[in-house]
Nucleic acid binder design. Structure first.
Lengths: 196, 196
DNA sequence: CACATTAATGACACTCAGGGCCAAAAGTCG
DNA sequence: CGACTTTTGGCCCTGAGTGTCATTAATGTG
């Protein structure tokens, strides 16, 4: 996301996150995630195996790209929310905005999420990312209600928001013609109807 | 859960799932999950490392014990549900019954879940277990509504049920005096209030 | 009792992820 | 050029997980 300006001191990096991501996705497409070794990715990038682990903490982190950066974005979206809106509505809209990629970025996003949600190892790893995402919501809810982020309601809203998003994603990835934002919306209204 | 009667043919097993679980939990308590090698567990049990991997697919699977067996139990609970109850109520009650361990088993259950939810590697791995659990709910919801288990609503109900349960578990584990079932209930009513 | 049958054990060897360590490389600045 | 800074990448180690296979320990049959 952020180009992250490095001080022009010392030896320049041999590659970038984007380059690694690209090479990795190409190999994942060809041989599948499990059958692609980190060594193969490093070789494709033209860099040492050891170096690759300085760009990404683990092989599982590669498909997520710079997710941590996008959490800041999410935090900003939530903060930007009009305070007169009901809390549930403001959280819901924030989730929608967060998942609103343009039509161009949508293809790459679909590829990324398709890989993650169809690969057990990546699905497992993603929880750690989801936890950070949920924490952003919990903090916001807690702040607006004057509660602790660890209290039951903020935590619950975080979990449920994720639940709705994941439900939408799963359906979206299974149906080429589906619209992600509409699905998140449908999941929400579906839940409300279900609960009465 | 089930004693699973083995044909009394061939060489008898050198250990049991329960024995391994016991030894493993003792070591996890002493040194922590990450610092306990599979080899150490095998040695504690008095069995070869290779053999241990025939009882549990991975180190991560050990804390879960015989979870797959308990899924059958969950399926039975859901099937047992009175059909005149509103669907959301019947799912909710099933979740409660599933998590109703007696006062004796509660201690061991807390230990198990405490380990899982406080260890990143186990948290990650648990998604795969949760997915099976969610599928049981989705199937039930789909059957009652005449939908496909992959449709949006069944999937959503599965995800949201898990969301509520996990919220309750997190709070439960952080507060010694809390009651798990009450918390699941509170999470549910909290969500309903939140959504209006 | 000897012997086939069955099924589990455990040793060995291998792959791969991940991380500690450190000398060498490749820039910038004075 | 020489001092300084930062990244690289090679080496080597640990530990999880898997394939293979000879060995072991049980049962059942003649």
């Amino acid at each position: 996301m952020t180009p992250r300006p490095r001080p022009a001191l010392g030896r320049p990096g041999a590659t970038t996150h984007e380059q690694i991501e690209e090479a990795a996705f190409r190999l994942f497409d060809e041989r599948g995630f499990a059958d692609t070794t980190v060594e193969a990715i490093a070789e494709a990038v033209g860099v040492g195996r050891r170096t690759l682990f300085r760009y990404f903490e683990s092989k599982n982190d590669i498909p997520w790209g710079r997710f941590t950066d996008s959490l800041e974005h999410f935090r900003a979206i939530l903060a930007d929310t009009p305070p007169d809106l009901p809390l549930h509505e403001s959280v819901h809209r924030a989730v929608l905005r967060f998942n609103d990629f343009g039509p161009e970025a949508a293809a790459q996003h679909r590829r990324r999420m398709g890989l993650i949600l169809s690969t057990p190892a990546l699905q497992a790893h993603s929880v750690l990312r989801y936890a950070q995402w949920r924490a952003v919501i919990a903090e916001h809810v807690a702040a607006r209600l004057g509660l602790d982020p660890g209290d039951l309601l903020p935590v619950t809203v975080g979990h449920v928001s994720l639940a709705l998003a994941l439900s939408a994603y799963e359906f979206w990835l299974a149906h080429d013609d589906a619209d992600l934002l509409e699905l998140i919306d449908s999941a929400m209204t579906g839940l409300r109807d279900h609960l009465r």
